[in-house]
């Protein structure tokens, strides 16, 4: 029997406090890099563009002096995916796919085969995902949750010329971060209380309706308590003169000139790579 305990110190970020050129960047520059790499990884017309994003992500990780083993750990799941998608593509086929068969089982069965087109799909999935994994891993390791929220607030304030929406966004994300450990603890307490009262949480039935009903003793109190806590906190904040307006603004350091250049450079480079990918790589990769 295992203990009814789970990881309560859950956090979303994974900030690693070391000195590196990446850590030293202004949060705005970190965001800009995240944005550029992600855009390229996700929207590049072919996997070649995504591959470029992947290379940049690796470079960023090296510059951030992050332990490579840790940074690469999420990539393990890519292996399964590569195998699975290859199998999937092997079994299913895309309508109108006339590309070269890389691998096939018998000649007559068109379905049971892996074409070059399908290989391209697999490569695309794997490379794009790998780039995203490395980039997000890199980003969450070099910025604290608080810094991230502040930067978003600042960006929204500048972009929308509206401090209320910016502040709302910052407030709601700060609240979410603050509540997560509390709610997780409460979840554990309530699970324990109901287990003590003989709750099975649906493990004794196959009927989905019965299963969902058996989840009510857990789900209802957790959610209701969260709503109650929200009410209490709203009152406490009001008692502390919070109105959301006229607050002392966070003193954020201005973005250094060199980093503004970096941001512009990154944006330009992204656009350039995207264009190269579209005009040079796509016609070349497409025919298959």
């Amino acid at each position: 029997m295992k203990s009814l305990e789970f990881f309560r110190n859950i956090s979303i970020g994974q900030y690693i406090d070391i000195a590196s050129p990446m850590h030293a960047l202004h949060p705005a520059a970190k965001f800009a890099l995240l944005f550029c790499i992600s855009i390229l990884a996700l929207t590049a017309p072919t996997f070649a563009g995504a591959g470029a994003a992947l290379l940049v992500a690796v470079l960023c990780i090296l510059l951030a002096r992050l332990p490579l083993g840790m940074a690469a750990r999420p990539l393990k799941s890519l292996l399964y995916v590569a195998v699975l998608t290859i199998l999937l593509q092997f079994v299913f086929s895309w309508p109108g796919d006339q590309s070269l068969r890389v691998l096939s089982l018998g000649t007559s069965l068109h379905a049971l085969s892996l074409t070059l087109y399908e290989t391209g799909i697999v490569a695309s999935i794997v490379i794009r995902a790998a780039a995203m994994m490395l980039t997000l891993g890199w980003f969450t390791s070099i910025i604290t949750e608080q810094d991230a929220i502040r930067s978003i607030e600042r960006f929204l304030r500048k972009a929308l010329r509206d401090s209320t929406i910016a502040h709302q966004a910052a407030l709601v994300s700060a609240m979410a971060l603050r509540f997560v450990p509390i709610i997780a603890g409460e979840l554990e307490d309530i699970v324990k209380a109901q287990a003590s009262r003989g709750a099975s949480f649906g493990s004794d039935t196959r009927n989905p309706i019965a299963k969902a009903r058996a989840y009510l003793p857990l789900f209802v109190p957790v959610t209701i308590r969260a709503l109650e806590r929200a009410e209490l906190l709203a009152e406490a904040m009001e008692a502390r003169c919070y109105t959301g307006r006229g607050r002392t603004e966070q003193a954020l350091s201005p973005i250094p000139k060199s980093q503004i250049l970096l941001i512009l450079g990154a944006l330009l480079a992204t656009a350039a790579l995207w264009w190269v990918d579209l005009t040079l790589c796509k016609p070349w990769i497409r025919p298959y």
Partner: peptide, 23 residues
């Protein structure tokens, strides 16, 4: 737990004075 606003000790103490718009 239901009256602490921010995730860091000193920021939370500053929360009230910030609402007053103090320097």
């Amino acid at each position: 737990a239901d009256q602490i606003v921010t995730s860091c000790v000193e920021e939370d103490i500053a929360f009230g004075p910030e609402n007053l718009g103090l320097p």
